[in-house]
Design a protein around this nucleic acid. Sequence first.
DNA 1: TCAAGATGATCAG
DNA 2: TGATCCTCTTGAT
Length: 277
Amino acid sequence: MPEGHTLHRLAGALREQFAGARVAVSSPQGRFVESAALLDGTPLVGAEAWGKHLFVEFEGEHFIHVHLGLIGKFDVFQTPAPAPVGQVRLRIAGESGYADLRGATACDLFTESQRQMVVDRLGPDPLRADAVPETAWRRVSRSHRPIGELVMDQEVLAGVGNVYRAELLFRHRIDPLRPGRTLRRGQWEAMWRDLVELMEYGVRTGRIDTVRDEHTPEAMHRPPRKDDHGGEVYVYRRHGQPCLVCGGKVRTEVLAARNLFWCPRCQPRFRSRSRAA
DNA sequence: TCAAGATGATCAG
DNA sequence: TGATCCTCTTGAT
């Protein structure tokens, strides 16, 4: 379930388990062998996320850059570590824990300048204290592209994926096909604040809950459902089902190569003033 | 038991 | 735009 909150949560888990310790680094699958050998036995300095990118830092300004893609997983466990099963691309092992990476789109050894090049391409990440939301607004407010495409563009906003896209636009009753440049500044600022809150909740709980009354202590302690995103949502993957607010049917369509979900009644088609007049 | 689809991104054509 | 990477869950058979 790799949206931005997953990576920030993972970075925290890696720091907690390994930061400051010498770790064993290996690549049982064989696709990261040379880099793993270089890092093996080196102190792990820390880990941080930027959008959907994860950087694990080792002494000597070496970074492992990980992007989980659609199906990747990076899990932290307590020792003893069993023999690797299946395609484990990367294993980091310490005294009391180990972490296995599988199925990632990217797992590379980076220098500081390579890390910076990746970060420079990304838009502001709502989960980072150093994010500058104005940068995203400049891009949105100048673009003719649909807002449903812009919020998923990592050069506009880093860390937002398909679930947060659908839910954010629903919560603000915005037509996903509405051109970015027609949004009002106040609308965008409200969306940004909402994203920060929703994603911080995601980091704390590991779930994506966007239905307003889900943000309660009771909801926080309820065990996650088996569904992937783990929480309660308004429209994501609810196509054909009644909208929780108006009862109309939730619809789905492909936008930006991904399945978009929205409620046509709560998010009516946007018409520009010039066209309506 | 098997096939399809999925919260992503890149590359070739 | 489609193929590719690669894993896991779900639903059909």
